[in-house]
Amino acid sequence: MRARHIDHVNLRIPEDGADEAREFYGEQLGFGVEDALYAADEKPFFDVRLSATAVIHLWPTEEFEAPTKTNYDHVAVVVEESVDEIERELADAGAAVEKTLDSPLGATGEAGAVYVRDPFGYRVELKARV
């Protein structure tokens, strides 16, 4: 097999967490939220659009268990902005920065990254493009 890219990531969220997820991923991080089919009860999850070829599926469920250090670390998303721009946009949106690293290694090489936590405990790495 010759993998091309990650298509999607599935994350479980609390059953009543859809509004918080829309606020964090849509408003604070500025990603597109696609939830029309979810709102129409046509599918059990909604999407955070990262790019034309990648989404995060958010699955509201009553069986939600917050991630722990032993079962989850982070999902990394490459963005077009520099670390300074990422930090500025997060500050303007009221999102708390957990940490910033100068050059963590990723799939395409080393580049600066800013880490945030979503309302459910998932860490998201916003990685500057190499």
Rank of each mutant, 00 (worst) to 15 (best):
D19S: 03
K99N: 12
I56Q: 08
E23L: 00
G26L: 04
L126Q: 11
R22K: 12
Y38C: 01
V79H: 11
E62Y: 02
A21W: 12
P119G: 05
T70I: 00
A113T: 15
E20K: 07
D73Y: 02
R12Q: 09
K69P: 13
V77F: 05
E63M: 01
F64M: 04
G106M: 08
V48L: 05
V75P: 13
G32A: 01
A93D: 11
R123K: 13
Y72T: 02
L50N: 07
R4F: 10
E81R: 09
A18G: 05
I6K: 05
N71K: 08
E15S: 11
L105T: 12
P104W: 01
D102S: 06
E15M: 02
D19H: 00
D73I: 00
G121C: 03
D47K: 07
V124S: 10
A95W: 01
G30H: 10
E110H: 03
R4V: 14
D102H: 04
Y72L: 03
F64R: 09
D73N: 15
L37M: 14
A111R: 12
A66L: 08
E110T: 09
P104Q: 03
A95S: 09
E63K: 04
G94Q: 08
G94C: 04
A107G: 01
R2Q: 14
A76T: 14
L90A: 04
L11I: 08
R4K: 14
E85W: 08
K43I: 03
F46H: 13
V83W: 12
L11S: 02
E27A: 02
T108S: 11
V48F: 09
L105F: 07
I13W: 07
A76M: 08
P44S: 03
T108A: 13
A39R: 10
G106D: 04
Y38W: 11
A128P: 15
E98Y: 00
A96T: 15
L58N: 13
A36T: 14
E98Q: 10
E27P: 03
E34N: 01
T108Y: 07
L90F: 06
G30T: 13
D118R: 05
D19I: 03
L58K: 09
A95T: 04
F24R: 05
E85L: 05
E15D: 11
H5Y: 14
P44D: 06
E80I: 00
E98L: 12
H5Q: 11
Y72V: 00
T68D: 14
D16R: 10
E15G: 01
E34Y: 00
E15W: 06
E62D: 15
T70M: 02
I6T: 15
S51Q: 12
D92T: 02
L29F: 07
G32V: 03
V55D: 13
E42Q: 12
A66R: 13
Y122F: 06
P67I: 05
E98H: 02
P67Y: 02
T53M: 10
Q28R: 15
V79K: 10
Y25S: 04
F45R: 06
V130L: 11
E62Q: 06
V124E: 11
T61M: 09
A93I: 06
V130H: 12
F24L: 04
D7Q: 03
S51L: 04
L29S: 07
A21S: 06
D16K: 10
D41Y: 00
G26F: 00
V75H: 12
